[in-house]
Nucleic acid binder design. Sequence first.
DNA 1: GTAGAATTCAAACAAACGTTTGAATGAATG
DNA 2: CATTCATTCAAACGTTTGTTTGAATTCTAC
Lengths: 231, 231
Amino acid sequence: MTTPPVRPGPETRNRILDAAEELFVEHGLDATSMRMITTKAGVNLAAVNYHFGSKGSLIQEVFQRRLTDLNRARLAALDALERQAGGVPLKPSKVVEGFFGPALEMACDTEHGGRTFMQLLGRTYTEPNAFVRQFLAEEYAEVLDRFLGALYRSLPGVPHEEILWRFHFMMGATSYAIAGTDALQLFAGKFDDADPSRLMPRLMSFLLGGLRAPLADNGHGRQAKGGPKAA
Amino acid sequence: MTTPPVRPGPETRNRILDAAEELFVEHGLDATSMRMITTKAGVNLAAVNYHFGSKGSLIQEVFQRRLTDLNRARLAALDALERQAGGVPLKPSKVVEGFFGPALEMACDTEHGGRTFMQLLGRTYTEPNAFVRQFLAEEYAEVLDRFLGALYRSLPGVPHEEILWRFHFMMGATSYAIAGTDALQLFAGKFDDADPSRLMPRLMSFLLGGLRAPLADNGHGRQAKGGPKAA
DNA sequence: GTAGAATTCAAACAAACGTTTGAATGAATG
DNA sequence: CATTCATTCAAACGTTTGTTTGAATTCTAC
């Protein structure tokens, strides 16, 4: 009824990946057992080890199949921006949009599991699991370098270290906005409007406000950019 | 050598709590076993169940013993601010400092485990464990209501919903700043200066910039506050 | 239609989990 | 000294964990 019996054949892999993704969001990586996954996917217990080798490899694959696309989209967005800018530094707002835009778009996709995955991803930046952290760091290395470089050029005169911190802050705000909206009961009953599509402009405005806030006093009150400006 | 043998007596409870706190940060709640905790604490395996009843109750106690103090400090800060303001609405920067200041102060305390705990707490806002979430929500209910109320009054004309969102964003940025600084290897080798005491002004400036950013267009470009202003 | 490879299956594996037990130990009270 | 209470201890409890096995099944191709 609910899940199609088992019929096809090579569909098993994807059923496992989808089931694992949802369960990881709901219960966490460690608290999700193989038996929970295979039951939800409607496949035999041994299927995970047959198709993926181990639980660790399954976790890696769950992240990889979406993260590769996400980061490709990010790099493509940055490429397009830099191409049409033709040498002149990008506006900070454009760089920020290029990085967080694709993430938020994926977070809005409730049809194909994009939203589910982004909730998982957001929570995973603080995962203690060393294996997952290592893997995430590798997957993000290039994207991070590219976008930080673009941000450095777009904010000349601002110490790179300050930009790095603010990028860190922006990632935090975004991850929580996505991962915590319905995960955390802290604000339970307080949000009238948790529509993820309305999240985008709200968050973007906040991020840019934070990015361009006056720098904390290192002796003189230098600003991160000329004047405040809408997103 | 490393851990004093077992000598005293009623010290056992605290040794367990301290060991658990560190291990929860390092490996997460689920991946930390009773045996890891009791081994690190240098006590017998049965001691946890004897003193706390169950692993769940131990987790609760690990959070409670610090969180109660933290939220008491927050409420005290708000009380003091409102008393000396005498009726007039507080400046948003003061409200924000009252909430996030005590958290950052605790995060700077490397001597008595405050830093360790704040890393744990930051990561726990997205904990999938239903029991932990429920407990956190209860522990935060009063503080959240008081500070949101103060923030509403300090930003008249701004829709409460927008303030709620931005508070959510601010909590996200802060949690990541604390939990992710050395937990996440994403920015590994990029931070020259991860000194937590310098984090405070940096983060506060970012938060206030985000809080006071122009509101996303709901039809008209209303600002959250008059002009930009340093923290 | 039969050979052969790929996949699924029920069953079992050892290891680790949180928890419980009942005896041994310690310090305090009479 | 004897008694009592709280605490510690080694050992075992029954489950659940991830993984493996070898036979059954399904699919592919000649």
